[in-house]
């Protein structure tokens, strides 16, 4: 018994501060948040305890999910995720493939494709707000003006001002920032494939294209999976870019994280907490199966 304590004691002691912090600030607060989301805490007086708060069960959730406004946010989030994910995977994969074989100045290409990753969404939002300016014709600036200059005037559009698909314009800067990251992931994947495998396929008479299709690509499935997870869960949390490009009050580009912020600004803590909880469920649906999968792989 004493021996056990001497063996397990020190490491447990060393990790316990972190464990307590994560326990309180992640799990504890999620529990409190869930409770708050089931109350009628919709006014400033209630948030400071000057007015009573009552338990209302899932009422806030039903109201939110039934409202046009929140459904619009959810639809936006879905659209944004599809475009962001598709775009980042497409460009990232293409760049990695182009750079896989020896290329002169590879380092330069790689560093420049990757650098937007180091910039904050707020800073890139500054320039993208200018680029995605909705003016057309003589007043056009930004990309619309560039389209005119290169003879592609028909491409001019209102960008994020479209109420149905405007959110996809916000995905463009996100793709710009994260494609390099996906490239780095896939490049590491390409380089991790043993050269012997490629040689064996060549000896068997495979063409370069067949080599990629039959030998290289199938090996990249785990990379694809983690790329989807990384981009997917980033995308579900989109907030900064919208705050910086189109301002939170814009209905066109509303997503749940923005709703959460707006409810909080109006001291409607109950609805704010409910939106947070809904986001958590959406992310968990994506992440938990992945974590379980990774844990199983690790044990094998």
């Amino acid at each position: 018994m004493l021996r056990d304590i001497r063996r397990w004691g020190p490491p447990v002691l060393l990790i316990s501060p972190s464990l307590v912090l994560v326990g309180v600030f992640v799990y504890g607060l999620i529990a409190v948040n869930t409770y708050t989301s089931m109350t009628d805490m919709h006014t400033a007086a209630q948030t400071t305890g000057r007015a009573p708060v009552q338990f209302v069960g899932l009422a806030n959730y039903w109201e939110l999910l039934g409202s046009d406004s929140f459904q619009h946010s959810l639809k936006n989030l879905g659209l944004y995720t599809v475009v962001f994910l598709g775009g980042a995977l497409l460009f990232g994969f293409m760049w990695a493939w182009l750079l896989d074989r020896p290329v002169r100045y590879e380092g330069v290409f790689r560093s420049i494709y990757l650098f937007p990753m180091a910039v904050s969404f707020i800073a890139s939002g500054v320039v993208w707000r200018w680029l995605l300016n909705a003016n057309t014709g003589d007043n056009a600036t930004g990309l619309n003006r560039l389209f005119q200059m290169v003879g592609l005037s028909f491409l001019q559009n209102g960008w994020w001002n479209n109420v149905n698909v405007g959110i996809t314009a916000i995905a463009i800067p996100a793709i710009w920032q994260l494609s390099g990251y996906i490239m780095a992931l896939f490049l590491a994947g390409f380089r991790g494939i043993p050269e012997e495998l490629r040689e064996a396929a060549r000896v068997d008479g495979a063409s370069e294209f067949q080599l990629y299709r039959m030998v290289v690509f199938p090996q990249l499935t785990p990379i694809l999976l983690s790329a989807v997870i990384v981009i997917g869960h980033m995308s579900l949390k989109v907030f900064d870019l919208i705050m910086s490009i189109s301002k939170p009050a814009n209905y066109q580009t509303k997503v749940p994280a923005i709703d959460m912020f707006l409810f909080k600004s109006q001291y409607d803590y109950a609805n704010s907490a409910a939106v947070g909880a809904i986001l958590l469920v959406i992310v968990a649906v994506l992440i938990v199966p992945y974590l379980v999968h990774v844990a199983r792989e690790g044990r094998r």
């Binding site: 464990l19 992640v26 708050t36």
Partner: peptide, 27 residues
Amino acid sequence: WRFKGADVVFTVILFGMFIPYQAVMIP
């Protein structure tokens, strides 16, 4: 310098990486 249950503790901690912070912001 592992102890009993180290893997469980690790998974418990790791989950904190993925949560949307919106889900803890109000409390």
